[in-house]
Design a protein around this nucleic acid. Structure first.
Length: 213
DNA sequence: CCCTGATTCGC
DNA sequence: GCGAATCAGG
């Protein structure tokens, strides 16, 4: 498998949405999570909280500084004012980057987002945990559309379009209570359990699969 | 043990 | 550029 533009697209989007490298690798197929991580780094998509690099005391820098007599100012870093990227309507507990707890039955939804079976409803995972302070700069194309940052647990998360495309957005309708999608899209997301013989194998194609045009 | 991401390094 | 091997924390 090679890194086509689309696969890179998917990687970017999912990585930025906070999906783990394993999830991304699984969704893409044909690559290991190592490959995903490697690629993510080469793409410059770095810096997500690593379990290994929790804190990073600037010890190494000291050796360099040692040669410079005038100690460079320790950089006070003017408190960057916590920006809430998406002004949510009501005061909800901060959208923590909650990762869904290893679902029992996991399949990939139309946009590559994890689909839960109705039986195991859980706190709807917000796939778009705004980490860091990324100023949501809605481009004109998606103005008025439901962006990744607008997702909350009561609007339909059905993806419209393909990740990476300028007008990629989400349905945004009111959800079918208890479900991550609106009534209409629940109809697409959840199919009646069919007898084994005439059940079709789930499409292995993640994130909308190959672009259909 | 499982998971995670980071890094290295031969290819 | 790629990704397996390795490392190291949770």
């Amino acid at each position: 498998m090679s890194w086509t533009d689309e696969r890179i697209d998917t990687l970017r989007t999912m990585w930025e949405a906070g999906q783990t490298a394993s999830q991304i690798a699984e969704a893409l197929g044909g690559v290991s999570r190592n490959a995903v991580i490697g690629k993510a780094h080469r793409l410059g998509l770095q810096a997500r909280p690593s379990p290994v690099k929790a804190n990073e005391p600037a010890v190494v820098a000291e050796a360099v500084v040692a040669a410079a007599p005038p100690a460079p100012a320790p950089e006070p870093e003017p408190e960057p004012e916590p920006i809430r990227a998406a002004p949510v309507v009501d005061a909800e507990p901060a959208p923590e980057p909650v990762r869904e707890p290893q679902p029992i039955l996991r399949s990939v939804g139309p946009g590559g987002f994890v689909r839960q079976s109705p039986g195991e409803q859980q706190p709807p995972p917000s796939p778009a945990p705004p980490r860091r302070l990324v100023p949501a700069k809605p481009s004109p194309e998606i103005a008025g559309k439901t962006s990744l940052l607008d997702l909350n647990d009561r609007i339909c998360k059905w993806p419209i379009g393909h990740p990476g495309e300028p007008d990629f957005h989400f349905c945004g309708d009111k959800v079918n209570p208890g479900f991550p999608y609106c009534v209409a899209h629940c109809g697409h997301a959840y199919q009646a359990q069919l007898p084994r013989r005439d059940r079709r194998p789930p499409p292995p194609l993640p994130f909308g699969g190959p672009r259909v045009r």
